[in-house]
């Protein structure tokens, strides 16, 4: 992975591809810009990076996608259900591992926060995010520097 001083889309996408492949046994691909990314309600995970670059990574996905991600992490069958708390835990842990990978590729980044997960009914703007695929569903990713 290329070493840089601030996270960019290519770096975060590479980390997501690695995590999708090794932890979730799925492939992640960039979502075509011209394709609509429908979103109802779901979960949003945040994790902070501190150092020469300060900000946070945010991952937002539909509730069904979050449940599927948690099931894939734990190797559950399609009929096995997880408590909502465990689904949030799983999505936060996915972002934690992505954040750890991103931190390792950044010069001068000395701290990774703990993931925080909450429910949301609003998808981020496509202008402020990029979208990766989970199967045939979108997952929104944001790289948000602290406000100056």
């Amino acid at each position: 992975m290329t070493i840089s001083s601030a996270p960019d889309q290519a770096l975060v996408l590479a980390a997501i591809e690695q995590v999708w492949g090794s932890m979730l046994f799925a492939s992640a691909e960039a979502w075509p810009a011209e394709r609509a990314a429908d979103f109802g309600s779901g979960v949003q995970a945040h994790i902070e990076l501190r150092g020469d670059w300060n900000g946070r990574l945010v991952l937002t996905c539909d509730s069904d996608v979050a449940t599927q991600i948690a099931g894939a992490m734990l190797g559950l069958g399609p009929d096995e259900e997880l408590p909502e708390l465990d689904v949030h835990d799983a999505v936060g842990e996915v972002l934690n591992v992505v954040g750890g990978s991103v931190k390792g590729a950044l010069i001068g980044t000395w701290a990774l926060g703990l993931p925080d997960v909450s429910e949301t009914s609003e998808a981020p703007s496509r202008d402020d995010s990029f979208v990766v695929s989970w199967g045939d569903a979108p997952v929104y990713v944001q790289i948000l520097p602290d406000a100056a």
């Binding site: 992490m73 734990l74 190797g75 936060g92 842990e93």
Partner: peptide, 12 residues
């Protein structure tokens, strides 16, 4: 581990 899911994955 503070993540229950990760503790399960480590155990698995």
């Amino acid at each position: 581990d503070d993540s229950k899911v990760m503790r399960q994955i480590v155990l698995r």
